[in-house]
């Protein structure tokens, strides 16, 4: 789903019921988001890394998936130690960082990566059609599901139209400057993109109607819950209880 590769259907995660997968992922993310103890987050990491392992992903792909979230997190490492009040640690000359700030940055880094790992294990094993259908099954309004689905499909087409238009501008000598001409040209570009997307949407809709579309999507990978799905989901829930226990009950760690 992220890198548009065909899904490897042999892994355990790929065969896990997508509805339970989504419920599990959402519960897990909410839980991790409210946790503050590093030990509890460590337990969360164990669960998410197990899920990644069960997805049969290559190490390289996992790292690639984590890269975007960490490129955001890196900014926190610049700002939090310098801006949060607390015990000062001298780093360079008059520059000081606070211990509390560093702690917070560590916590956010850990949480973000743990959540992202869980999301990767979901995204890499669920195709868009199935994910959309599972979301619809879970009660998400069909309009949102369609929006999600078509955004995914046509973002590339719109991008290629954008590149075509930009090239068309460039070959006629357009160089962006800080001028009214530049702003106007960019406004035309965006406007034209909107018009084209509108036309495209109309044509796609017509093409779908021609093939008997009546508002409902069907997925080829239909899902039925089995005992195995229940077991995996049960184990996930149990482990999340352990995480909660470590976070709020025991003080040993």
């Amino acid at each position: 789903m992220l890198n548009e590769k065909a899904i490897d259907h042999s892994s355990l995660m790929a065969r896990f019921d997508p509805r339970l997968k989504i419920i599990g992922m959402v519960l897990f993310s909410v839980l991790v988001a409210v946790m503050e103890r590093k030990a509890a987050i460590g337990f969360a990491f164990l669960l998410s890394i197990t899920m990644v392992f069960l997805s049969g992903l290559k190490f390289r792909d996992v790292v690639k998936g984590l890269a975007p979230v960490n490129s955001m997190v890196i900014f926190l490492w610049f700002f939090l130690p310098l801006s949060v009040n607390g015990v000062d640690i001298r780093i360079l000359g008059p520059l000081t960082a606070s211990r509390e700030g560093i702690d917070l940055a560590v916590l956010i880094t850990l949480k973000a990566n743990v959540m992202m790992l869980m999301f990767i294990s979901f995204a890499a094993t669920t195709n868009v059609m199935t994910a959309g259908q599972a979301l619809a099954c879970l009660g998400l309004p069909s309009k949102l599901v369609h929006l999600f689905f078509f955004t995914y499909r046509y973002i590339f087409v719109i991008e290629s139209e954008f590149i075509t238009l930009r090239t068309a501008m460039a070959i006629r000598g357009f160089v962006p400057r800080t001028s009214v001409h530049t702003y106007r040209s960019y406004a035309y570009l965006v406007g034209m993109l909107l018009v084209r997307s509108w036309d495209r949407a109309e044509r796609v809709y017509r093409a779908m109607i021609c093939r008997g579309f009546n508002g409902t999507f069907y997925s080829l990978s239909g899902f039925a819950m089995t005992r195995k799905d229940g077991v995996i989901f049960g184990v996930m829930c149990l482990w999340m209880m352990v995480m909660g226990y470590v976070e709020w009950v025991v003080k040993a760690f």
């Binding site: 548009e4 868009v128 059609m129 499909r153 044509r203 796609v204 579309f213 997925s219």
Partner: peptide, 16 residues
């Protein structure tokens, strides 16, 4: 591109 809107070829051909 107006017609092929499913992620994979098989899904698209099975859509109708």
């Amino acid at each position: 591109d107006d017609q092929l809107f499913c992620p994979t070829v098989l899904e698209d051909v099975a859509f109708g």
